[in-house]
Amino acid sequence: MDLLSAIEILVKSMLFASAPLIFTALGGVFSERSGVVNIGLEGLMVIGAFSAVVFNITFAETFGAGTPWVALLVAMGIGGIFSLIHAVATITFRADHVVSGVAINFLALGLGVFLVKAWYGAGQTGKIPVPMYYTKIPVLSDIPVIGPILFNNYLTSYLAILAAVAGWFILFKTPFGLRLRSVGEHPLAADTMGINVYKMRYLAVFISGVLGGLGGGVYAQTITQDFSGITITGQGFIALAAVIFGKWHPLGAMGAALFFGLAQSLAIIGSSFPFLADVPNWILLSAPYILTILALAGFIGRADAPKAVGTPYIKGKR
């Protein structure tokens, strides 16, 4: 294999594998920036993947070629609604954020597979009739060399990058973003300034549900194309790692997700690269996790969480 086609495969699979991670990690950034830990990202991806696949199978004839896109909207909606369970438990009922997240993961997987078995009579759905395809972007994809590499991919990959930029703008350049971050840093001060801490946190968790659902929907409709109990295996936790590795910053999370996507794709196609042939597969598969631990330990720049993350806000308590 010559170098150029190797790079082409690598870049394409990186964009392909990282799009769902970017969306989900962005969701994680929103939630954690508001002070709510979201271990449930995995579960939100599961529910997104489930909704998108079921919708795609059921309504393929009604919506035709547009089905995957409508399915993504459905996945976003259901992900958002599902995340409200986490919001109610952590924000209103003051449940431990990590415990509630664990429960979200259980519930999503249990409910998803339960319904698939109840509706389809088997542990997994059939293939979706209308998956997503590569889209050639006119004009740009005709540029020699970089055109076919960069401008003939899933549209969702570009959307993910755009969403990360939009997420950065919203969090750091708008009053809404400032308020959202302030309830995660110092909720009491934010409350004193007239910001409704509970409302902001509910919104943030809802956004994380929407984005997590979207990530799951994208994953299912581009990569697995069906739904079963093993459709989402750890992607949500990789996204969580990307949140931390990206230092709770939308663009950082995007960079981390791209990098983790690269590591994932290297694990699959790495054997075709001579310089990677000797690296055991498990090292590549574990790379995102090992790097996150190193980053947290301060070996690769210090990563500090928002100050009030994981603590319930109790009005009137100092």
């Binding site: 003051r94 429960a103 259980f106 519930l107 249990g110 409910l111 597979v113 078995k117």
Partner: peptide
């Protein structure tokens, strides 16, 4: 389906975690 039990377990965790309420 067996997964009903996963749902039940998840709900139990939610309630134990929300013991405040």
């Amino acid at each position: 389906p067996t997964e009903l039990v996963e749902i039940v377990i998840a709900i139990i965790i939610f309630f134990v975690a929300s013991s405040y309420i």
